[in-house]
């Protein structure tokens, strides 16, 4: 089996190698920059790259199709991110092959793929069979293949990337450790009334080890209060503790957090859906609980030093 992966970012490049090993195939990767190609060559036998510049799906897709036209992949892998899905749809449409998204597990019997995918907003998992060739969008995970000293080949693609669509990016200013690697993730939801109130979350993160914070989709996409969000259309995390504050716990959000070891939720509504998905469900007002918690950590710290 020949497997072609679109190497969107370095975390995904590593995780995709786990999926490839599960399927058992010869791996090719296409990346939108030389930097990512260097990363990819540690895990892939053959890597192709193009200088993609700012993301624009049809431009990116053209480069990936160029490689597919040379190698004839049986399976093509994309991350189930907004960008990954958009490019994958263009790709599968151009190749007229089946496309399955939100995949959380892969398996195969001979030339039939057996895939588990999230459906109904993350409330259910469906088991689906697919013939080859197929385009698969995988929900990114955090596992990594072992480091090797191997170095695969790298080739630059020389194709025209002209476009009818102009695009510009206002990048977000990041900060703190990446969510995917944190042991504690504090997630803020619409229970927070003002942007300034997130200061409490920032303070809590600054008082704890290897921790990071994020939000639910409305806080990031609607209000613009944060860099990223957790859930089906955002980031998937698997920390040791997931502390959800003022989050109702819609499945679309929870699929990004269900791999956490311990889930603690603070919510004033005793019937919020998250009450069914938390190890510790604290019923109460976040505006009373968070300041006390911060104070407790601070005073215990000063008394022990």
């Amino acid at each position: 089996m020949k497997i072609l992966c679109y190497g969107e970012n370095s975390e995904w490049i590593k995780y995709s190698r786990i999926i490839i090993d599960k399927l058992g195939g010869y791996p090719y990767c296409v990346t939108p920059s030389r930097e990512l190609a260097e990363e990819s060559s540690k895990y892939f036998e053959e890597t192709y790259f193009f200088n993609g510049g700012v993301y624009e799906p049809s431009k990116y897709c053209r480069a990936i199709l160029e490689v597919a036209g040379r190698i004839f992949p049986d399976v093509s892998l994309f991350p189930s991110t907004i960008k990954g899905r958009t490019i994958a749809g263009l790709y599968a449409g151009a190749r007229d092959e089946s496309i399955i998204t939100d995949i959380v597990d892969v398996d195969h019997e001979d030339s039939v793929l057996k895939l588990k995918r999230l459906v109904y907003g993350g409330s259910c998992i469906a088991t689906i069979k697919s013939t080859l060739p197929a385009t698969l969008c995988i929900t990114p995970g955090t596992q990594k293949p072992p480091e090797t000293s191997r170095k695969g080949s790298i080739e630059e693609l020389r194709i025209s990337l002209e476009n009818r669509i102009t695009v510009s990016l206002n990048p977000r200013v990041g900060g703190g450790p990446p969510l995917e690697k944190s042991d504690l993730v504090v997630a803020a939801g619409r229970g927070f009334k003002n942007r300034e109130d997130l200061e409490m979350v920032r303070e809590l993160v600054s008082l704890t080890v290897n921790s990071a914070w994020s939000v639910t989709r409305p806080l990031a996409a609607e209000y613009g209060w944060a860099d990223n969000w957790i859930g089906i259309s955002g980031v998937t995390v698997n920390p040791r503790i997931y502390l959800a504050v003022g989050v109702s716990g819609q499945p679309l959000h929870m699929v990004g957090a269900r791999n956490s070891k311990i889930i603690i939720a603070i919510n004033k509504d005793p019937n919020a859906p998250i009450s069914q998905e938390a190890d510790y469900f604290i019923v109460g007002d976040l505006y009373k609980i968070l300041p006390k918690l911060i104070e407790k950590i601070k005073t215990t710290k000063t008394s022990s030093t």
């Binding site: 899905r85 490019i87 749809g89 496309i99 939100d102 109904y120 969008c137 259309s233 679309l252």
Partner: peptide
């Protein structure tokens, strides 16, 4: 229900 976010780009292609 299926939130695949791909139909638009399939049509585009």
């Amino acid at each position: 229900d299926t939130h695949s976010y791909t139909l638009g780009s399939i049509i585009s292609s």
